Amino acid sequence: MDTNTATPDLVRHPRHVERVLAGTPTSDGAGVKLTRVLTQPLQRRLDPFLMLDAFGTDNPDDYIAGFPDHPHRGFETVTYMIAGRLRHRDSAGHEGLLENGGVQWMTAGRGLVHSELPEQQEGRMEGFQLWLNLPSDQKLCEPGYRDIASGQIPELQTAEGVRVRVIAGASHGVAGAVQRERTEPLYLDLHLPAGAAFEQALPAAHNAFIYVYRGALDVADTPVAVQRMALLRNDAGSDGVRMRAGAEGARALLIAGQPLNEPIAQYGPFVMNSNEQIFQAVEDFRAGRFV
Rank of each mutant, 00 (worst) to 15 (best):
M1I: 14
D2H: 14
T3F: 11
N4F: 15
T7Q: 12
P14N: 05
P14E: 06
E18R: 12
R19I: 00
A22K: 11
A22L: 13
G23H: 01
T26Q: 13
S27E: 15
D28Y: 04
L34N: 05
T35P: 00
Q40A: 15
L42W: 06
D47F: 07
P48V: 03
F49P: 02
F55A: 06
P60V: 06
R73V: 15
R73K: 15
G74L: 06
E76K: 10
V78M: 13
M81A: 08
M81S: 10
G84L: 11
G84F: 03
R85P: 04
R87D: 11
R87A: 14
S91Q: 08
S91N: 09
G102Y: 08
V103M: 09
Q104I: 06
M106D: 09
T107Q: 01
R110I: 10
R110V: 10
R110D: 11
R110A: 14
G111P: 05
H114V: 12
E116Q: 05
E116N: 04
P118V: 02
Q120V: 04
G123T: 15
M125T: 00
E126S: 14
L132V: 10
P135L: 09
D137A: 08
K139D: 02
L140V: 07
C141R: 13
P143V: 06
G144P: 03
Q152H: 10
Q152Y: 08
L156V: 10
T158D: 11
A159R: 11
V162F: 07
R165F: 02
I167F: 06
S171M: 09
H172K: 00
Q179H: 05
T183W: 01
P185M: 04
L186N: 05
L188K: 07
D189T: 08
A194H: 05
A194I: 03
A194P: 03
A197I: 01
A197S: 08
A204Q: 12
A205F: 02
H206K: 00
F209I: 01
F209V: 03
V212L: 03
A216T: 14
D218F: 06
R228L: 07
R228N: 13
A230C: 02
R233P: 00
M243T: 05
A250V: 08
A250H: 06
A252C: 10
A256C: 01
P259T: 04
I264Q: 04
G268T: 11
F270M: 07
V271E: 01
N275R: 09
E276L: 13
F279D: 11
V282L: 14
F285Y: 15
R286I: 00
R289W: 05
F290C: 12
